[in-house]
Design a protein around this nucleic acid. Structure first.
Length: 907
RNA sequence: GCCCCCGUGGCGGAAUGGCAGACGCAGUGGACUUAAAAUCCAUCGCCUUUUGGCGUGCGGGUUCGAUCCCCGCCGGGGGCACCA
């Protein structure tokens, strides 16, 4: 400690260097991306909007109250090295980070800490900014915002208004010349008024309420009656996920009831075809494409055909898996159904209606429900159609024994439900048991491809406080009215108590109420919507937090634009098709990095909005995200003692016993497990600890070197030392630890030159393909070689520093400066490999597939010469047993493969 | 159950048809040191140890040559959950 040279690359020096460069970058506006026009045009004069744009996007973070662990920044470090790499290649890189701050988690955190969500959200954002800023990420600070900012919320509401004011015309030509386009609802109204499009009752004779109903069946954002899981005990509507199999709430175990509720939806089903078609042109992981395809519903189904009581029965199964599922198949042969007394009236009526009229049933399926027959029970039974002769009859496949929503509580009740839902004469002549029916169905299945859209419209209302209010009011006749754009944003009123109301848990007749409904002063308004001052009631539901995350990437382009949600010139400059190296006409963000957990919903919703905005002429690109990359997760070891309790992972001692690693906590042997990083498993490591003990650069290098970016990997604190040693060695190679001055040689030997060249070649390819782990390995090889030299050649040092800069920017800037440069590395051109020829290469000679000899040969050796040379080798002759080879394969200059006569015989 | 992905040293992982185990961690031996840390050097799949033999979950196949391509198993992970 006393003897440590004053210029050793210690964590303390690393911190000093890191803070120094972070300040310089900030003061110089180093990461300002340049817009095509307007106030953000000049990007600090460096780029002047003339370069090719490159947009790098991180998935919108939610500012959690729990703080970050070392897994969270993984994706940000990845996008940062890509951004820095692209800047060095001469691109105008747009890289920004905002915050997705509305939604249930934010509200729950606020409730738990007894504060207002706006306050907790702002605090959490500040904390997250602090933790991230210490990483030295190259975001453009001018483009950051939160979804809760009134200025942003205004445009979210504005986009909702466009969706509400549009309908989908399957025959209208859209900008790319194909059929099917969103159009203003006014066009539809004109068609109704002129009689060009017929309605059941003449349009002119309809009441405002009737007109509203008709239009809502066309609007892309529409209001209708849908089912929800209502839990009076919690005073809230629950997601299906939050309801247990017993039909109770996961939290609190309260009864849950199915309720019809008037709420908002998005007509995403209208875009199903296009959402499927355009997937093919995207540079996305195949698994994510498959998940979206599966979700949208054009999946393969099975047609099963068999006979029941002399009649041919065909069944289409949208889930191929259900046939072999341990479920049972019941086939009624008539349409008369006797439904259980216990079933709610609604469900009974819908059931009968659906069963007796296949047509009605099919249309209701298309509009909102995934299963043709089971919609009234929604997932209780996977009800399907069967065709018996000319008749359509219901088929049930189920493995549920209990369905509390319908009053079916256990095995006995479930049987009751089954028996009553099938025919009185269940055709015993065909199948005596369900197993037989299943077997027959399996054997006779016809593997035809069928299409059904299972995709369902997107439920867009939440009975919650912390979300965007709808720009909607209701007149006294119950008809909804859109607020004009000049009324936006509709801000949230502050409520003394924003929590959900409490109800009698057993009162099934109660209805959920939105917290906003409690503020009568806010709800009741007097407005002039063009026909004089009138009284209205505001919509009291709020939007889900998908709303804000559906379009944030557009706002980064022109964050302060007061006239547009995105400035059209910036949209064209940054996102239009072919805007840089994109090979198709879809356009969109160049690179989108985030977790695979958003593979379906977020990505699907954002694509849907993007396409609508494209149809309406606001955007130039057909897709929002051209390339998608899913980074893996950082997992961590956790340790349990003999009682199964978790013990702090940071205090574990490992020893080697009989060649195996074993673990001790306070002298007691403990077990090692593997799982998520977090407080509950006592294995959390925070970025702050890493900054303090190693520095941000070491942390960045470690996270990027752990393995392929797309894989999940275990956090192993011991391994961090390797990354730290690498940076320390690099530092020592360039800087004299005693004086702090650069000590390099102006000469470079040819061996170092060749290795440098080879490294540039390899690292460039690795960076391009987002393989930082192998790039770092190659840089370590070069660095280890430089360590072995008496003095590091300047050219090699400068090459190293340039190549490592995207991953470990601070130390590289410092070394670059010490090497005598005054400009930041950020815009220094990425090194180019020289054209050079190896003179001599090693050739491998194989006999019967085994390497028997190595030859040093001229790189441009001719195949004949190489063959002759190989055959003249004594060892080769020995392995051939003195005979001529049976076969010779020569791939000059790398390999000669010989097949011996004896080797062939053995085979 | 169905679909997708993945199985390589003690560990994280390299190599995508051409010398398996790059690079890092851990381990072992040594140098330096009063000592420790740090640093540096050597070693580091298994068996024989000398030429060699065997090794990428298992069993087949294609090929001059297979971790890589094909077929069949075994094992692990993810999706199929209307959810933020």
């Amino acid at each position: 400690m006393i003897d440590a040279p004053s210029w050793r690359y210690t964590p303390a020096l690393a911190e000093k260097i890191e803070l120094k460069w972070q300040k310089i970058w900030k003061d110089e506006g180093c990461f300002f991306a340049a817009n095509a026009e307007g106030p953000l045009r000049d990007g600090e004069g460096r780029l002047a909007g003339k370069r090719k744009p490159y947009t790098v996007l991180d998935m919108f973070p939610f500012p959690s109250g729990k703080g970050l662990h070392v897994g969270h920044p993984l994706g940000y470090i990845a996008t940062d090295f890509v951004s820095r790499f692209k800047r060095m290649q001469g691109y105008n890189v747009l890289h920004a980070l905002g915050f997705d701050a509305f939604g249930l988690p934010a509200e729950q955190f606020a409730i738990a800490t007894g504060q207002h969500p706006r306050k907790t959200t702002e605090e959490n954002i500040a904390n997250m900014r602090r933790q991230l800023s210490r990483l030295g990420l190259s975001f453009d600070p001018r483009r950051s915002f939160a979804t809760t900012d009134p200025d942003y919320m205004k445009w979210t509401q504005w986009i909702f208004a466009r969706l509400y004011s549009s309908y989908y015309d399957p025959d209208f030509l859209r900008p790319d010349g194909k059929k099917g386009c969103a159009r203003p609802i006014e066009d539809l109204i004109k068609e109704f008024e002129s009689g060009k499009r017929k309605t059941q009752k003449p349009w002119q004779q309809m009441s405002a309420k009737e007109k509203s109903e008709v239009l809502n069946s066309f609007r892309l954002a529409y209001i209708s009656d849908s089912f929800v899981n209502w839990c009076p005990g919690l005073g809230t509507v629950l997601a299906n996920e939050e309801v247990t199999k017993e039909g109770k709430s996961e939290r609190g175990n309260w009864p849950v009831y199915r309720k019809k509720l008037r709420q908002w939806s998005m007509r995403i089903t209208a875009y199903a075809d296009r959402l499927l078609e355009d997937l093919d042109g995207l540079d996305w992981p195949e698994t994510v494409k498959a998940m979206q395809k599966n979700w949208i519903g054009k999946c393969e189904g099975l047609k099963a055909a068999f006979e029941v009581a002399g009649e041919k029965v065909e069944v289409f199964l949208p889930y191929p898996s259900l046939l072999s599922h341990p479920s049972f198949l019941v086939l009624p042969s008539s349409l008369s159904l006797d439904l259980p007394e216990k079933w709610p009236k609604d469900a009974k009526e819908e059931w009968k209606e659906g069963a007796s009229s296949p047509k009605a049933l099919f249309s209701s399926f298309k509009s909102s429900h995934p299963y043709p027959l089971a919609h009234s029970m929604d997932g209780v039974f996977s009800g399907l159609f069967a065709r018996v002769g000319e008749k359509n009859v219901p088929v049930f496949i189920s493995d549920y024994v209990s369905e509390p929503h319908l009053g079916i509580e256990g095995e006995e009740d479930a049987k009751f439900a089954r028996i009553h839902s099938i025919d009185q004469n269940p055709s015993p002549s065909a199948f005596d048991t369900e197993e037989e029916a299943l077997k027959a169905a399996k054997e006779k299945r016809i593997g035809e491809r069928e299409q059904r859209y299972r995709l369902r419209d997107w439920l867009f209302s939440r009975q919650r406080y912390w979300g965007e209010p709808f720009p909607i009011v209701y007149s006294e006749d119950g008809v909804e009215h859109l607020l004009p754009d000049s009324f936006l944003p509709v801000n949230l009123p502050s409520l003394p108590d924003y929590r959900p109301k409490s109800f009698d848990p057993d009162d099934s007749s109660s209805l959920p109420t939105a917290p906003l409904a409690r503020n009568e002063e806010w709800v009741q308004v007097e407005l002039d919507l063009g026909d004089g001052l009138k009284k209205y009631r505001r919509e009291t539901n709020t939007m889900p937090n998908w709303a804000g995350s559906c379009w944030y990437y557009l706002r980064y382009l022109s964050p302060k634009d007061e006239k547009h949600f995105v400035n059209p010139a910036e949209d064209r400059y940054f996102l239009s098709p072919f805007h840089n190296d994109q090979s198709n006409d879809l356009g969109g963000v160049d690179l989108y990095v985030g977790g695979v957990e958003h593979a379906v919903l977020h990505l699907l919703y954002a694509r849907f909005w993007h396409k609508v905005l494209y149809d309406l002429g606001y955007l130039s690109s057909r897709e929002p995200f051209y390339k998608l990359f899913n980074q893996g997760y950082v997992q961590a070891y956790a340790y349990t003692d003999s009682r199964g309790q978790y013990v702090p992972a940071s205090q574990i001692e490992s020893r080697f016993e009989d060649g195996k690693e074993v673990f001790y906590f306070e002298g007691e042997r403990v077990n090692r497990e593997f799982g998520k990083m977090g407080k509950s498993l006592k294995n959390m490591v925070t970025p702050d600890e890493m900054y303090e003990n190693y520095g941000a650069d070491t942390f960045r290098v470690y996270e990027m070197s752990m393995g392929p970016l797309s894989d999940s990997r275990p956090w192993n604190l011991k391994d961090v030392a390797g990354s730290q040693r690498f940076l320390q060695r690099l530092w020592r190679n360039v800087v004299d630890e005693q004086t702090g001055e650069a000590h390099v040689s102006e000469e470079m030997d040819s061996k170092t030159g060749r290795l440098l060249n080879k490294t540039i070649e390899g690292v460039s390819a690795d960076m391009e393909e987002m393989r930082p782990n192998t790039a770092i390995a190659k840089l370590i090889v070069l660095n280890n070689h430089l360590t072995s030299l008496p003095l590091c050649p300047r050219a090699a040092a400068e090459g190293m520093v340039k190549m490592l800069f995207p991953i470990a920017p601070h130390i590289c800037e410092e070394l670059w400066e010490k090497l005598g440069h005054s400009q930041t590395l950020s815009f220094t051109p990425w090194p180019k490999a020289q054209e050079w020829k190896e003179e001599e290469v090693v050739c491998v000679v194989q006999v019967d597939g085994k390497v028997r000899c190595r030859l040093s040969v001229p790189a441009d050796i001719d195949e004949k010469d190489l063959e002759r040379l190989a055959l003249s080798q004594e060892t080769v002759k020995q392995w051939l047993g003195g005979e001529d080879p049976l076969k010779v394969i020569c791939r000059a200059p790398k390999i000669v493969s010989l097949v011996s006569r004896s080797g062939r015989k053995e085979k």
